[in-house]
Amino acid sequence: MSVLQTGRQALLGALARLPCWPAARDVPYRGGPRIAVIGNCQARGVARSLEVLLPEAAVTLVPTGQISRRARTLRAFADGLARYDHVFSQPIAAGHFPDGGLAELLSLLPRARLFPPIVFAAFHPDMVYVGDLSAGGAAGLVPSPLHTYHSAITLFGYLRGLSEERILRLFRDDVLARLGFLDGWDLAADDLVETSRSIGFDLAPDLLRWSRRGAFMHGINHPKLFVMADIALRLATEAGLDPAPLPVEAYLADDLLGEVIWPVYPAVAEAYGLKGSYVFKRRAMPKAPPSVLDLAGLVRESLALYRTMPRARLTCQRTEHWSRSPETCALFDAA
């Protein structure tokens, strides 16, 4: 298994519990179908796209990080969903309810339709979480200058005792190539397609179409709006509904633009025929202009945070993998 794929299931479980969005809201009945959309932060894009595509529908968003607050048991949760005409859900991680998980929910709601979480690391192979992914939500994650997202190169450089200047020298094309950052497309694509096919929602044709539009991700787990709009369109069409034939992104703002934007590094971008940069955007603050960091700023602020942390908290599957590779350790130590 590639290092870029390591820990994907743990990552998806953590994403499902992160409190990205407000609690679910019940919307007024509009005379059209009642639709519940269950999922992580990506599900908001699906739900809002459905509101554009199906203006008569009453769409309710149910964040997976909050489903156990709506009901104490799986059966009670399923009973609450029974009033909806359609339930569209990302896979639900185990542990939300004592009486079952996804398989049991689907047996209680046989008309529910699954759609896959989108995780695609090829554009942003340096972007990682640090900390305990199994702790639940953001509780076990180490904060960073970019919310909970870290640079694996910066972290491993710190763990190897490198200075800021030496870490910055590692962001070279030859180093990125030796780390496998320039040839991660096939692995990322195979992983996404395999995951989607495992729940009966084959993304292979969609992935080909998205790739023709350039970098379709803001980061490893935040797709651009047109990706989630395509998924919403498929869900509506395959459910026998009649979605409006229009490009959702022309009418709807991309909420995930308010989250962290990780750049496609120039060497990675060149490999895919794109334009790259080292400009990172922080999470948006209310009524404030976008705040960005250059590479030196990210490294400097990250190192300042790491120095305040117990070393035992700075765990990351990527850097643990690198630490077991003499070649990678020598690459960093030579910087």
Rank of each mutant, 00 (worst) to 15 (best):
A330S: 15
L61P: 10
L53A: 05
W21E: 15
P63L: 12
P286Q: 04
L295W: 10
T60P: 12
E164C: 06
G100E: 02
L331G: 13
V248K: 01
T148V: 12
V59N: 12
L203E: 00
L208A: 13
P247W: 11
R25W: 10
A121P: 15
L208D: 14
G157P: 05
T60G: 15
D79W: 10
R318W: 02
Y149K: 09
V130L: 07
L155W: 05
A188I: 06
W210S: 00
P243H: 03
P98T: 04
L314G: 00
L81V: 05
S163K: 13
L81S: 07
P63E: 06
T195H: 10
M127W: 06
R166I: 05
N221Y: 04
T148H: 05
V3L: 10
D191I: 11
K281S: 06
E238D: 06
L179M: 14
P110Y: 01
S196K: 08
A122Y: 01
R34A: 11
T6V: 13
R178V: 13
D26F: 15
H124A: 08
T195F: 10
A57I: 11
D174N: 14
G240I: 13
G157C: 14
Q5I: 08
A82M: 08
P143T: 00
L50N: 14
K287I: 15
L4R: 15
R212W: 01
